[in-house]
Design a binder for these strands. Structure first.
Lengths: 345, 345
DNA sequence: AATCACTTCCAAAGCGCTTTGAACACGAAC
DNA sequence: GTTCGTGTTCAAAGCGCTTTGGAAGTGATT
C-alpha cells in the first residue's frame, strides 16, 4: 500500500493525504480523521526511502563501532547504552544504524555515511583524550553528540558526560574517611578520557589528604574480570598490600572479589572494594542492599539522554553547543568497611 | 557531489556514469576508468536513499531486539554476534539497522519495517521453542535467517544453529567418564529452544549411563553471575552436593566458581565445572590452558555465517531453505578433574 | 451581483538514482 | 550507396514521497 493507492482509495489527491498524515493545517479535521483511519486500516506506512529522499532527512542515526583486530572487543557497556538510545529512537521515529568498522577505517566510515546520506547524525562512543572525531565531524558538517568528552575544546561541540573526576574524588574520600591509606586504583585504559579523569579525581583526594600516590598501586588496563583478578592477587601478595580497591568497572570488581575469596580475605572487612557501577543489566549489583559500594550512573539512562540531545541537535542546526554533566550517586553496599588496624603498629 | 554534478563534470550523461560505476557492459573501458577516477577523486558515493528507491533494494538488514520491561536485559552475547554480522555487512555493502522494541510490540515492529521498506531482510535472535516469528515473517514475505531454531518445522526456513544437544551430551559424558555421578545442570531459560536442547543432551547422556536425572540438581534461569553463585552455594550446602556443574554460560560459571571459592572448595579437584563458552570477547577463557573446560562455539563466527546466509537468501529469492548445524568443540581446561572419592564409602 | 477572505483541495515539480528504449556514429557487408 | 550490425552514449520515465504555487468552493461583506 503506497500513497497513490491510498489516496485513490479515498478519492483524494496524494497531496492532501500526505498533508493530512503529516499534520499540516491546510486540511480539515474531518478529512484528516478519515485519512488517518484509512491509513491505519490498510497498515499504510510511508516508504522511508522515498520520504528521506523527498525531505532530505534520513530519519536515522548512526553509531560507528571500531573493531580493533588486536583485542577484538565489543564493550559490554555498549549493549546497555544503545538499548537506552534505541528506546528514544523508536519513540521519535528514528532508525538506528550500526557500522562495525575496522580500526583506522573510522574516518572513511564517517565520510561515506555522510556522502551516502544514510544518516542525519552520529553518536561518538568512548572518546579518547585526543580524539580526532569531533574535529572531523564538525568539518564534515555531520551533527553529532559525544558520550563523554575529549581533553581539548569540549565547548565546541555537544556532549553528555558523567562527572568522572568528581565521582572518583568522592569515592576516594569515602575510603579515606574509613581510615584506608593504601588504596589501589584499578582503572580503565588511560588514553580514554573518562579513565584519566577518574585518576585525576583519585589523585586529588589522595593529595588533599596529604598522601602521596603510589604508582605501584595503580593499574590501567582493559576492564575485564581476569585482569581484576590477576592484578588484585599480585597486589595482595606483596608486603604492603592495599586495604582497599577503587575499581572502574563492576566486571573488573568481580575479578578482585575472586582474588579476595581465593586468599581467604573477607570483602568489606579485611579488604574493601569500591567500584563504579554503570548499571549494566546483566550485572545487577545485588538487591536491596547492594553487594558493592559503588559510584552509580546508569549508562542506559545516558543512552537515552544522548539520543534525545542528538535529535535536538539535528532539529535545531543553528543552536549553540549544549552539554550536560551527570553526577554519579555514591551508594553504600557491603563491600566496604573501616580499614583494619595496622598490625605492625 | 551527486550523479548529475559528477556527470556534468565529466561531460557525460548521468546514465553513462551510473552504468560505468555499476559495471554495466555498455560502456567502454576507457570511459569507465575515467568515471571511476573522477568518482574517487570527488569522493562520490551514490545516495543510498535514492538508490534504494530506484532499485527497490534497501541494502540494509534489520535486527529487532525485544526489550522486556521486567528484566531489562540486553544479552551480552548479542554484542559479539552483531559485531560478527557487522563485519560481513560492511564488506558486502549492507547497513545494519537495529530496532529496540518493547516486548509484545515485536510483530508490529516487523510489519512496520516491511511497510516502510527500511530493510531487505532480518535476523531472528534467540528463538523460543514455539516462536511465532518464522511464521509471521514468512507470511509478510520478509526474508530472514534464524540464529538458532524453533521446535516446529525448522525445514521450512533458513537457519544456523549450534548443535546444543550434541554439545551437552558430549560434555555430560565427559564428566561421567571422570567418575562424576551427581552432575548439576545450570541451564538458561528453557522456553528458549537452545536451552531445552541442551537439557535433552544432558538427560540422554545421564540416561544412557543408567542414571536417573534429579530435578533437584537442575536450574533454569537467566544466565547471570549472581544466579550462578546463589544456586551453586545452595546446592553445595545440601547433604548430597553435586561433584560437577554443567553450566550454560561462562558468565554464570563465574558465579559458580565464586561459590566454590567462598566455600573453600578447589575448582577442578573438589568440584568440577564444565561450561559452554560462546567465545565472548569480554570474557576470555584464559590463555594457553583455558581456565574452564568448555564446549566452545564462537558466537561472533556464528554472526558472520548468519549474515552471509541472509544475504544469500536475499539475493536468491527462490532458493529452497538452507541450514547449517555447527558442532561445538569440547576443550579441556583446568576446571574439571576426576570425581573425588566418596567419603561415605 | 461582485468582491473578499478563508478553507480545502489539487497538479506538477523535484529529491538522486536506475533503467528502458532510442539515437548516433562508424565501419563492414551487400 | 544503401543496409546492417556493433559499440557507445543519451533522453526520459519512474521509484514514493513532499512541497510549491495555484484553483475551486464557501460563505460573509459590500
Amino acid at each position: 500500500m503506497n500513497l497513490k493507492e491510498l489516496s485513490k482509495n479515498l478519492g483524494l489527491s496524494p497531496t492532501t493525504v500526505s498533508r493530512a498524515l503529516n499534520g499540516y493545517p491546510e486540511v480539515s479535521e474531518a478529512t484528516r480523521e478519515r485519512v488517518r483511519n484509512a491509513a491505519q486500516q490498510h497498515n499504510y506506512h510511508p516508504n522511508t526511502r522515498a520520504k528521506a529522499l523527498a525531505t532530505g532527512r534520513a530519519m536515522a542515526i548512526g553509531h560507528v563501532i571500531p573493531l580493533s583486530n588486536q583485542h577484538e572487543m565489543v564493550n559490554p557497556v555498549f549493549g546497555d547504552f544503545i538499548s537506552g538510545a534505541g528506546e528514544v529512537y523508536a519513540q521519535r521515529g528514528y532508525d538506528m544504524v550500526l557500522s562495525i568498522v575496522d580500526d583506522g577505517q573510522e574516518e572513511r566510515a564517517y565520510r561515506d555515511l555522510k556522502a551516502k546520506g544514510t544518516i542525519d547524525g552520529v553518536i561518538i562512543h568512548g572518546p579518547h583524550r585526543n580524539d580526532p572525531r569531533p574535529a572531523l565531524l564538525t568539518d564534515l558538517g555531520l551533527p553529532f553528540v559525544v558520550h563523554g568528552r575529549t581533553a581539548a575544546d569540549p565547548d565546541s561541540y555537544w556532549w553528555i558526560d558523567m562527572n568522572n573526576a568528581q565521582a572518583f574524588y568522592r569515592a576516594t574520600r569515602f575510603l579515606l574517611d574509613l581510615g584506608h591509606r593504601r588504596i589501589a586504583l584499578f582503572n580503565g585504559l588511560e588514553h580514554m578520557d573518562f579513565a584519566l579523569r577518574r585518576r585525576n579525581g583519585y589523585e586529588r583526594a589522595m593529595t588533599e589528604a596529604g598522601l602521596t600516590t603510589d604508582t605501584a598501586l595503580m593499574r590501567s588496563e582493559e576492564m575485564s574480570e581476569s585482569y581484576g583478578y590477576l592484578h588484585a592477587r599480585d597486589l595482595l601478595k606483596t608486603d604492603t598490600p592495599p586495604t582497599a580497591f577503587l575499581v572502574s568497572s563492576i566486571i573488573m570488581a568481580l575479578g578482585v572479589r575472586r582474588a579476595l575469596d581465593e586468599l581467604g580475605l573477607r570483602m568489606g572487612q579485611d579488604v574493601s572494594i569500591l567500584t563504579h557501577d554503570d548499571g549494566l543489566s546483566y550485572f545487577p549489583n545485588g538487591g536491596d542492599v547492594p553487594i558493592f559500594t559503588s559510584t552509580q550512573s546508569s549508562v542506559r539512562q545516558a543512552g537515552r539522554m544522548v539520543a534525545d540531545m542528538l535529535i535536538e541537535r539535528i532539529l535545531t542546526p543553528t543552536a549553540p553547543p549544549k552539554s550536560h554533566l551527570l553526577e554519579a550517586a555514591l551508594i553504600v553496599g557491603s563491600s566496604t568497611g573501616p580499614a583494619p588496624k595496622d598490625l605492625s603498629t
